[in-house]
């Protein structure tokens, strides 16, 4: 219980450009969509979105600020905000 509270971060989908922080949780069920939650989670993990990784929001698209480009450790990755909901971040 208290553990979950400690871990709770802000979804990456809500972040604006320039924010950075550490990923505290990757949870596919937070971003219901076309993919099974477990599958989405594995894909995010394989692309480096894993608990403990540093992320920084670098850019966003014109319409609705979507998609976003983020730096995950040393790598730049583009993704949509709808999937970014699955990534919770403790912003600095």
């Amino acid at each position: 219980m208290s553990n979950a509270d400690l871990d709770a971060g802000t979804p990456l989908s809500l972040a604006s450009v320039g924010l950075s922080g550490v990923i505290v949780r990757v949870d596919g069920t937070r971003a219901p969509g076309m993919l099974e939650p477990e599958e989405l989670e594995r894909r995010l993990l394989e692309m480096g979105f894993v608990e403990g990784a540093r992320v920084r929001v670098l850019h966003q698209g014109l319409l609705g600020g979507d998609p976003i480009a983020v730096k995950v450790d040393d790598m730049r990755v583009a993704l949509r905000r709808s999937e970014a909901r699955a990534i919770e971040v403790n912003f600095d």
Partner: peptide
């Protein structure tokens, strides 16, 4: 359909 997730390395 809606499109699948977009995850791409830059």
């Amino acid at each position: 359909r809606h499109s699948e997730p977009f995850l791409m390395e830059l």
